[in-house]
């Protein structure tokens, strides 16, 4: 069929949306260190452990849960995660924008259970083709590093230049190194 985009304007303008949109960083972005001493909210990723939550999805969205991650948006103990009364618990949503890329935190939503959380996430966070896969995680299942400990928690890597290729200057100019 005819190319996508507004049919009333040349198709190239639709492509422009795509290419420009792809470049805007969003979601949990780790900030560059402003000073070597105090690191404002770095977000190192503690290896996520994937646990299948529900595989009954008929909509083709993959499901897994991350048990640990340093995503900072999140659970507060005020938000009940047990489904009581008519208040639905909070879920964190992670979207893989295309094959080969990581799932990225997109935001959160409320849903009564994992199955509905996935569907709500599909409806809310992928209305404009933002993703090819979705994870939902109960907000209170996320363990996060202690922000008050950031000085000590993230101090160790500082100054260990020898972990980086740039430390090794003598080999500069040598091919294939």
């Amino acid at each position: 069929m005819t190319p996508h985009g507004n049919p009333e304007v040349p198709a190239s303008s639709a492509g422009a949306v795509e290419s420009s949109a792809a470049k805007v960083p969003a979601g949990p972005v780790s900030e560059p260190s402003a000073s070597p001493v105090i690191e404002p909210s770095a977000s190192p990723v503690i290896e996520p452990v994937e646990i299948p939550v529900s595989t009954s999805s008929t909509s083709g969205v993959s499901t897994s849960a991350v048990s640990t991650s340093s995503v900072s948006t999140g659970s507060t103990s005020e938000v009940s995660t047990s489904s009581t009364g008519n208040v639905w618990p909070l879920w964190e949503v992670f979207v893989r924008s295309s094959r080969g890329l990581s799932h990225v935190h997109a935001g959160s939503l409320h849903a009564p259970d994992a199955a509905m959380a996935l569907r709500n996430a599909r409806d809310l966070y992928t209305r404009r083709n933002e993703g090819v896969s979705i994870w939902v995680v109960p907000a209170d299942a996320i363990a996060a590093s202690d922000p008050d400990a950031k000085g000590s928690f993230f101090e160790s890597p500082q100054g260990k230049d020898y972990r980086h290729a740039t430390y090794y200057t003598k080999s500069e100019g040598v091919k294939h190194l």
Binding site: V17, E18, V24, A26, G27, L101, Y125, N129, E130
Partner: peptide, 8 residues
């Protein structure tokens, strides 16, 4: 990787 990359 972006959670807000949009396409038509």
């Amino acid at each position: 990787a972006s959670a807000t990359r949009i396409t038509p």
